[in-house]
Amino acid sequence: MVIIVFFALAVICTGAVLGMIFSRNQATSALLLVLAFAALGGLFGLLGAPFLAVVQVIIYAGAIMVLFIFVIMMINMGQGIAPEKKKGIIVLACAMAIVLLIELVFAGRGSLPGAGVTGPGVTPTDLGRLLFTTYAYPFELTSVLILAALVGAIALVKKREP
């Protein structure tokens, strides 16, 4: 039963990314990506990370992708931009990507076999305890990071007074 869910999510995810590659409209790409990230959230859930699954859907598929769509709206590209037409680049890139894929599979071959994922995952309670005990300090630091990003983004985009 679980394996069916896994394959369904994997197919949705891969398909969405493939669709994004071939679409010429940025808004379509972004919406396909929302689908892909949502599916990834489901996969996180299968891996026993319910909290991260929810975070993935809310933050990534929600907030970040909305940000993308905002920017796409502001930069109105009209007809959109067709994918690369030069065959050379695509062939080269695909060749390199396949080489890299082979290398990566080879590098991770030790973890390929193995029993199925079982047992309870990490509950939100456990995660919260970890965050506020062992990782309290980095956790507080992330707030500084986000604040810095906020200020930076505003400073970048703000129109200079003439």
Partner: peptide, 20 residues
């Protein structure tokens, strides 16, 4: 930027290959 990214990719593949 694509040329740079390609050089980057090539480099990663090479280094990974050397290590593996």
């Amino acid at each position: 930027v694509k040329d740079y990214a390609f050089a980057f990719l090539l480099g990663v593949a090479l280094i990974l290959g050397v290590f593996l």
